[in-house]
Amino acid sequence: MKIAILTGAGVSAESGLGTFRDKDGLWTKYDLNEVATPEGFARNPALVHDFYNARRTNCVQATPNAAHTALAALAMADHDLTLITQNVDDLHSRAGSPAVIHMHGELMRALCASCNARWDAPLAMHPSDCCQTCGAAATRPDIVWFGEITYHMDAILDAVTAADLFVAIGTSAEVYPAAGLVEQATGDTLEINLAPSARANAFASHRFGPATEVVPAWVAELL
């Protein structure tokens, strides 16, 4: 069976990494226009770097939870599984999942805005940092900001349309194009979430509860 899985912030929330759109989410504490847009970075790169430096530190201190490890076990057992994540943390990889598709970029990677080179980011980045390839002082987090094009969409759409089962886990389904992937699915669909998402009605079936409980139980049924 071919399975395509999309994960969102709800999967990493129980590892201590904040969600974005819940009542206590990051976008209630920060102005996304200032820290998550190309325009915000152009206005105040130091502020943006400070925001992502703090998130990078939180990520390093976090550990994969039972949902991450269950999905890694499924990935190792099922070679027809494609794991897509909206999350920019590296917890899926640290749990053992191979070939994770990061559609919104990776917090632990740096990007040169001048030559598009990428490399492992230091724990703290600064506006004066120079690209390791071209030398330009144009480094930024390798994150897809609002208004930018999502990464790997061709591969994602291929996986979702070819899947016998599409599963969305821990996502609010409020950010496109990720929120619209369920509409591209041609097979069965399942939503696993703490509560119904904004696109819950588009899924054929649902399982609700904490990801650390529901995901391992669902994976155990498949293994």
Rank of each mutant, 00 (worst) to 15 (best):
V182S: 11
H68N: 09
V144W: 00
L6S: 03
K2P: 15
L223V: 14
Y52P: 07
S12Y: 02
N193G: 05
A36R: 07
L32D: 04
L71A: 13
S114T: 09
V88M: 07
T28P: 09
H49V: 04
G180I: 01
L83Q: 06
W119E: 03
D142R: 04
A75S: 15
M108E: 06
C134H: 05
L17Y: 06
T139A: 01
A162Y: 08
N58W: 12
A75K: 15
V88R: 04
H49A: 12
D188I: 00
N65T: 07
A200C: 15
A178S: 08
F166R: 11
P127A: 12
G147Y: 02
V182M: 11
A113V: 00
A163M: 14
A110T: 07
L17F: 05
A124E: 11
D158E: 14
N44P: 04
D22E: 15
E174K: 12
H49I: 06
A67V: 08
L181A: 02
C115F: 08
I149P: 00
L223C: 09
H104R: 02
A136K: 04
A185W: 06
V182K: 12
M108P: 00
A121K: 05
C134Y: 03
M103T: 10
A54I: 06
S12Q: 02
A159H: 05
G25T: 15
N58G: 08
S97T: 14
H68G: 10
A137S: 14
A168R: 01
A195S: 13
A46N: 09
A178G: 01
Q184P: 01
K2G: 10
Q61W: 03
N201T: 10
G209E: 12
L17C: 08
H79V: 14
P216Q: 07
G135Y: 03
L74R: 05
A138G: 03
E221V: 11
P64A: 08
M76G: 13
R94H: 12
E183M: 11
A124H: 08
I169N: 07
F20Q: 05
A138F: 01
I169W: 03
D78W: 10
P216D: 11
Y30W: 11
A70V: 11
G105F: 02
A13I: 06
I143V: 15
L222Y: 07
D78V: 14
F20D: 07
I192R: 09
D22G: 15
A137H: 00
S128A: 14
H126V: 09
V167A: 05
T82C: 12
L83S: 06
D164V: 07
G25M: 11
A168V: 15
A198I: 02
R140C: 00
A46S: 14
E191A: 02
I156G: 10
H126R: 14
H79L: 07
A198T: 05
